[in-house]
């Protein structure tokens, strides 16, 4: 088992004919992902890597039964691409694109979340995220597939490379993962920690969860409110402990402003929720193992 995506997931690539879109489609296919369609307006009727390309998402869904999409289109077209995925009735959309204006995302995320009221609708992962992998089953996005080993730990993170580093160390420690998700580094995200944790809680194969947060916002604090209700252990890590206030540390969302969003506040909230928080990444596999034993 895994969460959100598995062997059956039928993936559509929005922006498949672009450089990034083509490269990562190839990587996804190599991982075994069922990429059933691509969409690039004006390129309908052609194929890329033997994948049929359509002009619109709606047409691609009708023809191929795609139920998830991944977005590789430039920042100015990405908000529209998410809305097109929503309109076509997909159940999952993963937006890799970085640099989307925050006001656009407030509007788009509003409509995406409205679709979820009463169950169903579309779930958005990202933007500005690496996507997700269900170990050995399906990869959507840009995570390196070779570092993921089938196992029992769920990973959810606001960052990209740091996640790979931690996943790699879990794999090397023989723990392995169920699903690894990068929710993104932007201030406004389609899915937050608090949205993902219940999915891991409900997944029979996931035995522990690693939550990788960073400075900025209060998503970690919101997660800390939910964690005491979980039956599975959560292990935390927060980056940016030494970041100066008022400076944006690479990610649009990684900023301490007006004294809010500090690493200290997040570590404290998680600790109070009973989460062991690692001081350094190398402690994480040990803390996971300890949590699994007790």
């Amino acid at each position: 088992m895994s969460i959100l995506i598995n062997r059956e997931t039928r993936v559509l690539v929005q922006g498949i004919t672009g450089r990034e879109g083509t490269f990562h489609t190839q990587q996804m296919l190599a991982y075994g992902t069922r990429v059933v369609a691509g969409v690039t307006p004006g390129k309908g009727g052609t194929t890329t890597l033997d994948v049929p390309v359509f002009d619109t998402v709606a047409e691609a869904v009708r023809q191929t039964g795609a139920n998830a999409s991944v977005i590789f289109v430039p920042q100015r077209f990405a908000p529209d691409a998410v809305l097109e995925a929503l309109d076509a009735g997909l159940s999952l959309c993963v937006c890799i694109t970085e640099g989307i204006p925050i006001q656009e995302m407030i509007r788009v995320v509003h409509f995406v979340r409205q679709s979820q009221v009463g169950g169903g609708g579309m779930r958005l992962i990202g933007p500005n995220c690496p996507g997700l992998i269900s170990a050995g089953e399906c990869k959507i996005g840009i995570m390196p597939g070779n570092i993921v080993q089938r196992g029992r730990v769920g990973v959810v993170s606001r960052s990209g490379t740091l996640t790979y580093e931690i996943v790699d160390s879990l794999s090397r420690a023989g723990l392995g993962e169920t699903t690894c998700i990068g929710i993104g580094g932007d201030p406004i995200l389609g899915s937050t920690f608090a949205d993902i944790l219940p999915l891991f809680e409900a997944d029979p194969e996931t035995e522990a969860v690693v939550l990788i947060g960073e400075i900025g916002g209060s998503d970690e604090e919101a997660a800390a409110e939910y964690i005491p209700r979980m039956t599975k252990p959560v292990i935390g890590f927060i980056s940016g402990r030494t970041a100066p206030p008022g400076k944006r540390m690479g990610h649009a969302g990684a900023i301490v402003s007006g004294g809010r969003g500090t690493a200290q506040a997040k570590v404290e909230a998680l600790t109070n929720a009973g989460v062991p928080v690692a001081d350094t990444t190398s402690e994480i596999p040990g803390l996971v193992r300890q949590a699994l034993r007790s």
């Binding site: 993170s157 606001r158 960052s159 990209g160 490379t161 740091l162 996640t163 790979y164 580093e165 580094g185 990788i212 960073e214 400075i215 980056s239 940016g240 402990r241 030494t242 970041a243 540390m249 690479g250 990610h251 990684a254 001081d279 350094t280 990444t281």
Partner: peptide, 14 residues
């Protein structure tokens, strides 16, 4: 990667 660099700063400080 922003997260990795942030963690590196933390590690150097440590």
């Amino acid at each position: 990667g922003a997260g990795l660099v942030m963690s590196t700063l933390d590690e150097v400080k440590r």
